[in-house]
Amino acid sequence: MTGAILCVETSCDDTSAAVVEAGRVRSSIVSSQNELHAQFGGVVPEVASRRHTELLPTVVADALDAAGCAWDDVAAVAVTTGPGLIGSLLVGLAAAKAYAYARRVPLIPVDHLQGHIAANYALGVEPPFVCLVASGGHTLLAVVEVGVRFRVAARTMDDAAGEAFDKGARLLGLGYPGGRELDELATRGNAGYAPFPRAVPHGRDFSFSGLKTALLYDLRGRDAAEIDVHRADIAASYQGAIVRQLVDKTLACARDEGLRRVALAGGVAANSGLRRSMTERCAASGLELFLPPLSLCTDNAAMVGLAAGHLPVVPWPEYLAIDAYASATQAKAARRPGVRRPNGRRASH
């Protein structure tokens, strides 16, 4: 793919657009809906969809402006088709199809997880490598063989790591979602204060739901005054347990797969405890670590463009049949024209 790729990403609550050319990020704009959703204590899907509809034209114009790119320079449009909130995805996909049709350029559908992984190509990583993808909705270890093609070596059996941070923050009285607040609090605490289970079942796979329950019972066993004094210590201990599991299993995967390069991706890769621990442990094991900047860890459209460079373009009119999918299990059906998703909603063509 040569020429500028206009990229759109609306899988959750951030409206983002970017221009990527030849693997280089020329611009990346993210309009966060965080403040809007804070009043609800989370993302409200239909509210998010409406906001995407309002924000996307401006965000796209800003991305083109920032890149010094005219519509005539756009050679293809790349867009996230899933997994994510279905209503949000459909807004981005419908807009991307319209842009592609209006400009007579092809479309490049991109999987959200491939996008997260591809953020590491901005750092010049070379496959094969193992990538820990951890966010509010996903936690998995991807063995990337070539481009953005990957095999899932491990995944969470219950909660995602980001969910463990957010729900833990709520139990600690930090609000919801409060993963970032928990991280800040944890930097001031003693991670050895509260004992959390070290052993994690499920072999290579992750599990965080037991840790969440352990935190709940740890807090129940303390009186309010003690929690007030030691909130930072408990937060540090809890965060330490999540981070230890993420790092242990990532390094074990690298060892088992015989890989020397490790990469991070997804919103949880912005967690300071995880970045510090992964840096130390990879250095100690002689592994090369790739840590994307925070702006490429959380949801953004630049990563969509970085992935798009490794994916096939879909010409008119085939791209009209591309559907969005909420979860990985529905991805196959979405790529087959004429197959309805179980929930019966379709992209508007």
Partner: peptide, 21 residues
């Protein structure tokens, strides 16, 4: 396959034996 918490996506849909959604 994996059945994970739908807290983030709010809803997840599956097909069971006999095609039951």
């Amino acid at each position: 396959g994996a059945v994970t918490s739908p807290s983030f996506t709010l809803a997840q849909s599956y097909r069971g034996s006999g095609g039951v959604v």
